[in-house]
């Protein structure tokens, strides 16, 4: 019974607008009056997800679904996919380029941070086509 559904497109390598989608999501949740702790966790997870799309994908989107019980964030992209998810999930592992690291990203905490901050975390990836992450945050 999804009540509210919003889609935020994220372009690859667009560092100018990087962070804007997660900022909009955060603002929307605050307007709704979602509990501060939940907003904080979604802020962290959605920002990591957005930066991942900018750095690693060929473009994608974040879809926010809100109902009375839960908030779902589906992050999907067109991209190279992740060959070894278990390795990618481990803290400190990163395939980011030196350029990206110079910008302060690519610490290899992204996926593990998303998993830690969400109540349910699901990742599916196909090499050569793309990755979809589904994060659920329970309300109350």
């Amino acid at each position: 019974m999804a009540v509210l559904k919003e889609v935020f497109p994220v372009a690859a390598e667009d560092f100018v607008s990087a962070g804007e989608a997660s900022a909009q999501i955060k603002r929307l949740l605050k307007k709704l009056g979602v509990d501060g702790g939940v907003v904080r966790r979604i802020s962290i997870a959605s920002y990591e997800a957005e930066i991942n799309l900018v750095i690693h994908s060929l473009g994608g989107q974040m879809e926010l679904q809100v109902d009375e019980k839960e908030i779902v964030l589906i992050v999907s992209d067109v991209g190279p996919g992740i060959p070894n998810i278990e390795l990618a999930m481990s803290e400190g592992y990163s395939t980011a380029s030196d350029d990206v690291r110079m910008m302060g990203f690519g610490a290899g905490m992204g996926l593990s941070n998303m998993a830690r901050n969400s109540d349910e975390f699901n990742i599916e990836s196909r090499e050569g086509s793309g990755t979809t992450i589904r994060m659920t945050f329970l309300l109350s």
Binding site: V3, L4, K31, L32, G33, V66, E68
Partner: peptide, 23 residues
């Protein structure tokens, strides 16, 4: 204190409905 002046509504369900309308 937290000031809740940003909230669309004190009731979450009504806030969701309002957000839908806003979009």
């Amino acid at each position: 204190r937290t000031l809740e002046s940003m909230k669309l509504d004190t009731d979450f369900k009504s806030a969701l409905a309002k957000m839908d309308r806003i979009e």
